[in-house]
Write a protein that binds this DNA or RNA. Structure first.
Lengths: 117, 117
DNA sequence: TTAGTTACTTACCTTATGGTAAGTTATTGT
DNA sequence: ACAATAACTTACCATAAGGTAAGTAACTAA
């Protein structure tokens, strides 16, 4: 899939009727975003390594990129502690937490689907 | 994104805790699936060309591929009428209709997101 | 006779996504 | 002195998703 990531999503000027869906997909699409959400939704802040360990094998590069995008999109907050070795914690913002409904719907549908086949 | 499309999704034998999410994403992921859902959810069967006309510019090749995958995944039914020029109609199955909750959650979140930025 | 129609298929190409492997930093533990 | 650590970055490569453009079938209307 390729969802074009746009810095501005403007539905007023956008003749495209799929704009809200498009907005969601452009932000949540991809292999990792919702999995990262799942890891972070437990609530307490997690370090880079903690997130990495809780996911399927994911490369540092990819995880970094995904976290940066989520930060840009205001889904998570990144807090850097100036220590050695580095310590960086990530947690969901309120906007990030508002993904719960989508998450639950996908999880529920996934179960339904798996049972029906 | 690349979601690996698997013919069998087996959560029992899968140690991966993200399996239901993964199942949903492997079936709904990509640029077009949910947009096609949106077009078809009106209810009445639509022809290939009708679907195409209601989407952002999409190539025949891509639309064909997406529809075939959705058919394989039991989300839609494809009905061929033996006439010339060809007539093929597509409509949602019950399983396809069960995507409504995901669709609404995405649409709602998209609106929220657009308003918050 | 020729153009138009629909639902495709095919060959080819571009772009995006994500992986691998290595290097970087500054400090602590052995 | 040297390895280990966490959170990166960089260069390079592989795969996949999706686009473009052309071709096909069989019939109808002009």
């Amino acid at each position: 899939m390729s969802y074009s990531r746009r810095s501005t999503i403007n539905c007023e000027n956008n003749p495209n009727v799929d704009c809200t869906i498009e907005a969601s997909l452009s932000i949540l699409g991809g292999k990792w975003k919702l999995k990262i959400y799942k890891v972070l939704r437990a609530g307490h802040p997690l370090r880079f390594k903690d997130i990495k360990d809780r996911l399927d094998p994911i490369s540092d590069k990819t995880l970094t990129a995904q976290l940066r995008e989520m930060e840009e999109d205001s889904l998570i907050i990144r807090e850097v502690f100036p220590v050695v070795p580095p310590k960086v914690e990530y947690q969901l913002t309120d906007l990030g937490k508002s993904l719960e409904e989508i998450f639950l719907a996908l999880e529920k549908w996934g179960k339904t689907y798996i049972n029906q086949r």
